[in-house]
Amino acid sequence: MIRKLKELFKEEQSCQRIEMPIDKKMLVEDLDLWYGKTKALKNINIELEENKVTAIIGPSGCGKSTLLRCLNRMNDTIPSVRVEGKVWLDGYNIYDEVTDCVDIRRKVGMVFQKPNPFPFSIENNIYYGCQVNGIDVDKGGVVERSLKQAALWDEVKDRLDENALSLSGGQQQRLCIARALAIEPDVILMDEPCSALDPIATAKIEDLIDELKEYYTVIIVTHNMQQAARVSDYTAYMYLGELIEFGETTQIFENPQEENTERYITGRFG
């Protein structure tokens, strides 16, 4: 309570800054995370390349989704979570006391495991982000641009005012991607975006991810190793809350340095 009040009356101060290494978009530095008393992430250090796709893989429960949600402070919505450490985005620490987590989420978009369109019309789904962030743009233009980027425009251009829930699962997921693109974030986080989809829809999304990296930095969590191998440029392997290995995807899959990684990649696990 008193801490909250102090926070309220604190002077505005400027955020810590560092010089980012070249070509790097985000740096994670000594990140620890607790769920109540259980430590779910242990001392994570990772450098995320700009305009590249980075995949995070690992067995279930290893903390890969948790790590992803740290990158846009979505874990703040869970009351029992405590985070220590730093995450730098373009030289600013997103866990700085003066940083506003709402601003962070505007710059770091997210796509969830299950397609979760709002129960509104398709165009209002896309426009929502601009609306809440007070971005003054032409609605039709944003809708068209985002849907085209998400390769959904041709399928829905005649029924933009229909309820988004009437779309198929794969279309819904691409709509969610389009929705995230509408506010022009720098980074897009994807939390197992294909796990609820059939192979054809999955293929479409994977093609899409490949196109997106031209403009955005994409970080994708997946339990599907083939997918990671197909779409990503860099791969991080996590195990029990620790980052075991991180490197170029070809290197991780063809020549892993750690034995643990190799066992997981080759399917000789457990």
């Binding site: 846009n72 979505m74 919505t77 709402v102 601003d103 989420r105 505007r106 978009g109 997210m110 969830f112 299950k114 979760n116 369109p117 709002f118 129960p119 509104f120 929502y128 982000g129 609306q131 809440v132 962030n133 969610c176 929705r179 995230a180 506010i183």
Partner: peptide, 27 residues
């Protein structure tokens, strides 16, 4: 109202109140 709808809104940079007003209550 499912939590993932609220999460989707928060992830787009909406405040909690905007989420309540524009997503939770309409839903």
């Amino acid at each position: 109202v499912p939590k993932d709808l609220k999460d989707a809104s928060l992830a787009l940079g909406a405040t909690k109140w905007q989420t309540t007003r524009k997503v939770t209550i309409p839903a």
